[in-house]
């Protein structure tokens, strides 16, 4: 299962790889990383339908924001599940994300347990 993580902070890659070490090693989880919305869309566009099971994206990014990207993804790949991760866990962002068809909404710092549960849920379905 491929999961795409979108964040302008590059250290997110290291963080996620270590957090999901066991899953990567034992459960065949594959993590893809994009550092902007634009990059993420490029990755998704490579294969149709996309080989990605789910997308976790930051909201606050230079250029295309996470919410913008969410709209585009939902437009192009309606079935693809996208969850948002935001430093600002406010109701406004949450509402916008959910209205745009986000699967879930996670506030930073990310609670990886709930994130893992989410991934497990997706992999089961």
């Amino acid at each position: 299962m491929k999961i795409l993580v979108v964040d302008d902070e590059r250290d997110v890659e290291d963080l996620f790889r270590q957090k999901f070490r066991k899953e990567i090693r034992n459960e065949g989880l594959e993590l893809l990383f994009a550092f902007s919305g634009k990059e993420a869309l490029e990755i998704l566009e490579k294969n149709r339908p996309p080989q990605v099971a789910t997308v976790f994206s930051d909201i606050n990014m230079p250029g295309m924001s996470g919410l913008e990207m969410l709209g585009i993804i939902k437009d192009r790949f309606p079935k693809l599940q996208v969850s948002m991760i935001s430093a600002y866990g406010d109701a406004d962002n949450y509402q916008k994300a959910m209205n745009s068809g986000a699967k879930g909404f996670f506030a930073k710092p990310v609670d990886f347990d709930s994130l893992k549960k989410e991934i497990r849920d997706i992999s089961k379905s």
Partner: peptide, 17 residues
Amino acid sequence: AHEIQNPLNFVTNFSQL
């Protein structure tokens, strides 16, 4: 806040990790 929050998150995350 965001700029501080981000490194703090990393600190938290990497230390937990």
